[in-house]
Design a protein around this nucleic acid. Structure first.
Length: 563
RNA sequence: UGUCCCGUGGUGUAAUUGGUAACACGUCUGACUCUGGAUCAGAAAAGUUUAGGUUCGAGCCCUAACGGGACAACCA
């Protein structure tokens, strides 16, 4: 988006490491990264940061970035997720070319490595109960004690492990453990479990295996198999690094070794990012699906009108460091505004219609007026919009008793209708209950936009739509899902669900200009005061559906509060 | 009573081999008015968690304390 400040930007700490490695000729100057999602959920804005980082680094330093599905746990994973993940990464604008890998591709290699470890006396089968193993592991402050199985002979271990693989044992009855150090201050080094039995069907290897490697026994090795140079992950894996290195050292043959680097994951204010909780929202029907525009998922943001460019820009602005952070969602909103301000077509819409009748305008006359699509970019061209005697304007654009700073329409006052005429409010039409039904106005024929006398100044310009020609539209205003009063949604499901904002979806029925009837679902539009919209790509109804993508800030309420 | 990581304006990220805190978002003013919560102009806001130390000089180095986070799934 902004290439000029890209160049002047200082290096983040990972780039510093990479440049140092490059300078020292490490890995023959090769840069290889990877994005390794587990296919157990949809990608969200936090993953987008990681995707942009990994692919971005590879691009910047002339390297490659692999896509690798970390599919070592068949019970939580599904092809539905791998498909959505691929779609989302592509949509974000990144390409893994032919480098689409799966941890399950390496199950044989990992199995062989495990056997070598057993042969070296560095792994053993433990057939104790989970509880016993857990108890022997010790606590954070107390070292563990060695398992009685630790002394098993190589032959017996080999036999047992083979039988584990052959499905002779029940789930939970046996595990393979690395023999490291039960006294280590690092819990992950206390003879970690590296293989467990799961009689479950894997979405790729199906029933070929009933033993599956643990994350720790797969990740570093896969990195090694793929020639990853910089294995970038989030902070919570920091304590795993000694184990990562231990295993890779057992595996490696030669100088090359992938290096794990940790960075702080993205947190967004007022936003829930936990996959587990997001899944709850979907399952409990609080949202319409993973791609509900209120969700922080990539597909949700996409439906909400975010562009890939805006998300990449955001990921860049957010920075990379090791300290825990909470990014203000305002920065995300800024990113989409920046992008759409430049690229979106401006279009007129009325969400809460108020009828305006131009009393001195001929009854059956229609004028097609030319208007510019984007005042910031003339190359986006013009379109014509119909003007007639009866119009709709926004209820908010009229006040019967306006306070001082209200410059829009009020009795006896003039405003410009964008791209049309200056009108003056002459009379308010009310029903028996005193509710305003319509306004009678007069227009000044000399002030038509583009005409010589059109440059008469009035204090304000408002949007409008011709009543007869406009298209009824369903307008959805999506708010973020959580109340600002409860930003810390950290408790149990109950707390978290009770913090949901029940008004997070408002549906209004308004009118839009006729040009939108043929709108392409991929087009983005911008409306006065409301924000940014796109036509809902999934809308099956004939109605046009707009998703608001930035929050409605009520400046007018602010002005009122002050006076 | 453990190990590891991290403490810079409200938020996030910077600060050449130690040289006297910068940028962005946000906030607040004001201007503009074919409108787009755009644009323009301006302002407030940290002396870098604290205390020592090294140094002519420390946000950067050292020590300690304090604060925050991670780690005890057969999850990733």
């Amino acid at each position: 988006m902004n290439n000029s400040d890209e160049k002047s930007r200082s290096l983040n700490f990972i780039e510093t490491i990479i440049e140092e490695d490059l300078k020292n000729g490490k890995n023959d100057g090769r840069i290889q990264t990877r994005f390794p999602p587990e296919p157990n959920g949809y990608l969200h804005i936090g993953h987008a940061k990681s995707i942009c980082l990994n692919f971005g680094l590879a691009m910047k330093y002339g390297g490659k970035c692999n896509l690798r599905f970390d599919d070592t746990n068949p019970v939580t994973e599904d092809v539905e997720y791998v498909d959505s993940i691929k779609e989302d990464i592509r949509w974000l604008g990144f390409d893994w070319e032919d480098r689409e890998y799966y941890a399950s591709d390496y199950f044989h290699k990992l199995y062989k490595f495990a056997i070598n470890l057993i042969k070296d006396g560095k792994a053993y089968v433990d057939d104790q109960l989970v509880e016993a193993i857990s108890e022997q592991r010790g606590t954070l402050t107390q070292h563990g004690i060695e398992s009685p199985c630790r002394k098993r002979s190589v032959e017996e271990n080999l036999d047992l492990f083979e039988r584990m693989k052959n499905g002779e044992f029940a789930e939970g009855s046996h595990v393979l453990r690395a023999k490291i150090d039960m006294a280590s201050p690092n819990m992950h080094m206390r003879d970690p479990v590296i293989y467990r039995i799961k009689h479950a069907r894997h979405h790729r290897t199906e029933d070929q295996w009933c033993i599956y490697p643990m994350y720790d026994f797969a990740h570093g090795q896969c990195d090694y198999f793929e020639g990853i140079t910089h294995s970038i992950c989030t902070l919570e894996f920091e304590v795993h690094r000694p184990l990562y290195d231990w295993l890779v050292d057992e595996l490696k043959d030669g100088e090359y070794r992938p290096r794990q680097i940790e960075f702080a994951r993205l947190n967004l204010s007022y936003t829930i990012m936990s996959k587990r909780k997001l899944l709850q929202l979907v399952k409990n029907g609080h949202v319409h699906g993973w791609d509900d525009p209120r969700m922080p998922t990539i597909c949700g943001l996409r439906r909400g009108g975010y562009t890939p460019e805006s998300i990449r820009y955001f990921a860049d602005k957010v920075g990379v460091a090791k300290r825990d952070n909470v990014i203000d969602v305002a920065l995300l909103e800024f990113s989409i505004r920046e992008d759409l301000n430049r690229r979106a077509s401006r279009v007129m819409a009325v969400t809460r219609p108020l009828k305006v009748i131009i009393t001195n305008y001929p009854d059956d006359n229609v004028e097609w007026l030319e208007t510019i699509n984007n005042p910031e970019d003339e190359s986006m061209g013009t379109r014509t919009i119909p003007f007639s005697r009866e119009l709709y304007i926004e209820q908010d654009d009229f006040m019967e008793n306006p306070p001082k700073q209200f410059f829009r329409l009020s009795p006896g006052n003039e405003v410009r209708l964008k791209s049309a005429y200056i009108i003056k409010c002459e009379e308010i039409i009310k029903d028996k209950k005193g509710i305003i039904k319509a306004l009678h106005c007069t227009y000044d024929p000399e002030t038509r936009s583009g005409k010589p006398l059109s440059n008469r100044k009035v204090k304000s310009t408002i949007h409008w739509v011709s009543a007869k020609h406009s298209v009824p539209a369903e307008i959805r205003l999506y708010d973020r899902l959580f109340n600002k009063e409860y930003p810390d949604v950290v408790g149990e499901e109950q707390d978290f669900i009770s913090n949901l904002n029940p008004d997070s979806l408002q549906i209004l029925y308004g009118f839009v200009e006729p040009s939108l009837k043929e709108a392409n679902p991929l087009d983005k539009f911008q409306f006065q005061r409301i924000g940014y919209f796109c036509v809902d790509p999934d809308s099956t109804s004939k109605k046009l559906v707009f998703n608001r993508t930035v929050p409605l800030k009520d400046t007018w309420a602010k002005i009122q509060a002050k006076t």
